[in-house]
Design a protein around this nucleic acid. Sequence first.
DNA 1: TCCTGATCGTCAGTAAAACTGACGATCAGC
DNA 2: GCTGATCGTCAGTTTTACTGACGATCAGGA
Lengths: 143, 143
Amino acid sequence: MSSAPPAVTSRLGYLLKHAQLRLAELAEPLYAPLGVTGRQLALLALFGAGPAQSQQDGAARLGVDRTTMVALVDELEAKGLVRREVAPGDRRKRLVTLTPEGERVRAAGEEATRQAEALLLEPLPAEDGERLRAALHRVVRGE
Amino acid sequence: MSSAPPAVTSRLGYLLKHAQLRLAELAEPLYAPLGVTGRQLALLALFGAGPAQSQQDGAARLGVDRTTMVALVDELEAKGLVRREVAPGDRRKRLVTLTPEGERVRAAGEEATRQAEALLLEPLPAEDGERLRAALHRVVRGE
DNA sequence: TCCTGATCGTCAGTAAAACTGACGATCAGC
DNA sequence: GCTGATCGTCAGTTTTACTGACGATCAGGA
């Protein structure tokens, strides 16, 4: 697509942005049949993993605003994929848990994500793909 | 910061987003003294490299909308960093060229970008940093 | 030469997304 | 029982990018 000069295309900012864009393009058609967006699937993955979490815990972990999280959970709840439950120990908190239907969509989404990532990494030798993931992981953790 | 479970943090989408976020955090204080944003610097890098380009050429190469490009060039022009000139061969097109001041900011920004990227890649061995860049490059080109 | 369709830059209006500030309900510590 | 802080929520605002339309300009054919 873009044949911008190296001064631009070799910037990490440019590369990260466009890699993300391309991944979104690849994933979208795989997510569409599930009736959810990539972001909604990310939420399902978050709340489906490990013990039940409150909305704000989830927001902090995903790096989104707590008010944004309200809207996101609203969407998933409207689709019947998650439920809000008052936390037993702290009635201010709402634990978000997956419904059976939500769990089904989560599992299917997990598989679609794997496929989309495989498509994105296709140009690379398999080991380089894992190296890329590991490198990003370290960079994000900042250590 | 975030200690989300592996089902989320190992997703490429998550990693790409947060790597970008972290890079932006690192770069912002370096860009601020120049009085421009990272995106504006990207534009300066784009139009400062190689022969003069029209707005729409630039838009296509950066992957932004043409109407967005109008606003971006407006900003840079207001700061006196670029000039619009009617293209000699095609009077519909506006060639965007850097003013001397724009060229100075571009060069300083280039250096700031290098520093920010170095900070981001700090956790990695030097060669892994370059491997990361190369892998992203191939993935973005899609081949 | 004139006409038709397309492209470029521009602008107004719109849509999507996230943030700010505030609120009631609830909790923890004194 | 009081005080300050936290959680989820909501209204309003801001930011950001896109859609559709416009005039100006170009290219190609009748």
